[in-house]
């Protein structure tokens, strides 16, 4: 797969939707293309996060450590970005990612992603917008959950 196909995949990631193609090409170029086999870990909960993952093909389980052992809380698939929280703010990984089948993943290191944002402010705006929307949704969900719990 070459840059072009990666750019194609990136375009479908909601976070990068509004960003023009040349910047996506740059993002793709500075990312590392990694292959994961079924069962391999992309990252481990509690570790320091230094990169975000953009899934090109395949799926991964999102597992969280609970008192009853590891529990799969979600699954992420093609064209989703995971681990981006860790590269925007210094928090440990909030979950473990394990490849379900063979995966193709673009890995963006924290340093490079930040450099890119600094270099292209409109890209930061886009990222901000997406995160704000996510926050708004989370807040709404939380409110709903609270009222649900109160009821």
């Amino acid at each position: 797969m070459s840059l072009e196909t990666e750019v194609e995949a990136l375009r479908r990631v909601p976070l990068f939707r509004g960003i023009d193609e040349t910047k996506l090409r740059l993002l793709a170029f500075i990312s590392d293309r990694m292959e994961y086999k079924a069962g391999e870990r992309l990252c481990t909960q509690g570790e320091e996060g230094d990169s975000a993952f953009i899934i090109l093909t395949g799926q991964a389980d999102v597992k969280v450590n609970t008192p009853e052992g590891d529990k799969t809380v979600a699954q992420v698939g093609e064209h989703s970005i995971v681990g981006e929280i860790a590269i925007l703010c210094d928090v440990p990984r909030t979950a473990t990612l394990i490849a379900v089948g063979d995966m193709d993943v673009l890995t963006v290191s924290k340093d490079d992603f930040l450099k890119l944002l600094k270099e292209f402010p409109d890209m930061s705006l886009e990222v901000m917008r997406t995160l704000a929307m996510r926050l708004e949704r989370t807040t709404r969900d939380l409110a709903a959950a609270r009222t649900g719990a109160a009821a």
Partner: peptide
């Protein structure tokens, strides 16, 4: 040249 034409020199990319 195309990828890095608009990137400033001090970005380190």
């Amino acid at each position: 040249v195309e990828l890095f034409a608009n990137v400033s020199g001090d970005s380190g990319l």
